[in-house]
């Protein structure tokens, strides 16, 4: 590996942005989980309880 191809250390600003991006992706994924949960509950309504136990 030549010097040019060696990974360089991220600057403080780049690290901060990376952290903010990771946080945003995490929130989006959590939001999506919540969204599918909500759709399931409200689409099925009370029928969600109507299952063999």
């Amino acid at each position: 590996m030549s010097d040019n191809e060696k990974p360089r250390t991220l600057t403080a600003e780049e690290k901060a942005r990376q952290k903010r991006r990771s946080r945003a992706i995490g929130l989006a994924v959590a939001g999506l989980v919540a969204l599918f949960y909500v759709i399931t509950i409200f689409k099925m309504g009370p029928a969600i309880m109507n299952r063999p136990l």
Binding site: N4, E5, P7, L10, R23, A24
Partner: peptide
């Protein structure tokens, strides 16, 4: 070319 490749590996975007 190596510089470009290295730079594009690091996203500079904010949310």
């Amino acid at each position: 070319g190596a510089d470009i490749r290295r730079e594009t590996l690091i996203s500079n975007a904010d949310p």
